[in-house]
């Protein structure tokens, strides 16, 4: 993350995404308890809806940003060697971006196919 995003911005991102993650998680768990999809088609249909699709994409993006700020904080605290930190941050970023792309692909396919 750029130097600009490092202080206040990262702190705000972490808190705002936390709220969205909390709200969406409560909805998701609630929906799964009260009205869980019973088969693949229903499951796919649920996530193919435009509101749910966008809400889930937002959720994935929030988790991505939240995790990035959190893991970066831990690495800043405990990994002082610059090259080690760059490697660690790169690995984390790669995994997070891969997760986000995979989730996006699944959501897009649910709407297309």
């Amino acid at each position: 993350m750029s130097r600009k995003a490092s202080g206040l911005k990262a702190w705000v991102i972490q808190r705002v995404t936390a709220i969205y993650i909390a709200v969406f998680s409560i909805y998701l768990v609630g929906a799964l308890i009260t009205d869980a999809p019973i088969n693949y088609a229903e499951w796919k249909g649920w996530f193919a809806g435009s509101v749910m699709s966008v809400a889930t994409l937002l959720f994935v993006l929030s988790v991505l940003m939240h995790a990035w700020v959190g893991v970066r904080d831990v690495l800043i605290d405990y990994v002082w060697n610059t090259s080690q930190r760059v490697i660690a941050l790169s690995v984390v970023a790669t995994i997070l971006i891969a997760c986000a792309l995979w989730a996006t692909q699944a959501l897009v396919l649910a709407r297309l196919v």
Partner: peptide
């Protein structure tokens, strides 16, 4: 002067 990841925002 307090902006940046260290001076203030290392507080958890």
């Amino acid at each position: 002067k307090l902006e940046g990841p260290y001076k203030l925002f290392r507080c958890h």
